[in-house]
């Protein structure tokens, strides 16, 4: 897979210029953390990578986003196919009001997979990859909403994995979870990196430092600094980055 590349991305919501000339290249099988104060554009940027912003009426974009060398905003691109390839996990676990099994199988079914064996196999593999199988294997027909918050979030990750994405976008996936569940999600991200490229928005600086290979700091719609995480958190080049990561603003 070629790296994910954003070139001169500018995003507007009406007159509001929310992303300014963002240039970034993200290598495969890495975890990239997007950090910055609220309103800096990091979530908008994340949503630009799988065209989630398309639903917003006032959304306008300039610049290109390439995944696998192809412009994802090209007219020929099927958005459903793009979203299969670029999965997303949200801040609040959002399982469907269905059984645990159905939640994971859902994506397969809407993508036309009907073989019972294939579905069963993928559900099991996805739940195992999401480190949830051991906890739910005996109650797959139970409602997903009966699971704890941390389990629900791992179920949502399993649901994303089931459709075999190459990139997983995560928007503060652990911010609504307790420390133990957060640790499990972080451990999972580390494992998933072997097979997937992960881009995560987080407000938790220690989490960004712990789990990511590279960190991008956004401020007022601009990408201020993008470097190895070990450099960003020990010797950032930009004073704004340093002030933000050390809690002096934001």
């Amino acid at each position: 897979m070629k790296p994910l590349e954003a070139k001169k991305i500018n995003v507007f919501y009406g007159d509001n210029h929310v992303l300014k000339d963002i240039d970034i290249t993200i290598k495969e099988n890495t975890v990239t953390a997007l950090i910055g104060p609220s309103g800096c554009g990091k979530t908008t940027f994340l949503r630009t990578l799988n065209r989630m912003n398309d639903y917003i009426e006032t959304f306008r974009k300039k610049g290109k986003v390439y995944i696998d060398g192809k412009d994802i905003y090209d007219k020929k691109v099927r958005v459903e196919e793009l979203r299969r390839k670029v999965g997303m996990v949200f801040q609040k676990p959002n399982p469907f009001p269905k059984s645990i099994f159905e939640n994971v199988a859902y994506g397969l079914k809407i993508h036309g997979i009907t073989g019972k064996y294939e579905i069963n196999d993928t559900v099991e593999k996805s739940l195992k990859q999401a480190a949830l199988w051991g906890e739910v294997k005996d109650k797959l027909d139970k409602p997903a909403l009966s699971l704890s918050g941390g389990q629900q979030q791992r179920l949502c990750i399993a649901r994303t994995l089931a459709v075999k994405p190459t990139i997983i976008l995560m928007d503060e996936p652990a911010s609504a979870l307790d420390p133990l569940s957060t640790a499990k999600i972080e451990e999972l991200i580390e494992e998933l990196k072997e097979k997937y490229t992960i881009i995560i928005v987080t407000h938790n600086m220690q989490q960004a430092a712990r789990i990511s290979d590279r960190t991008a700091f956004f401020y007022l719609g601009e990408l201020i600094e993008y470097d190895k995480t070990s450099i960003i958190f020990t010797n950032p080049k930009n004073k704004l980055t340093e002030n933000y990561i050390s809690g002096r603003f934001g």
Partner: peptide, 10 residues
């Protein structure tokens, strides 16, 4: 308590 980074950590 503060898990300092960058200059603060140094």
């Amino acid at each position: 308590i503060y898990t300092p980074v960058a200059t603060d950590l140094r």
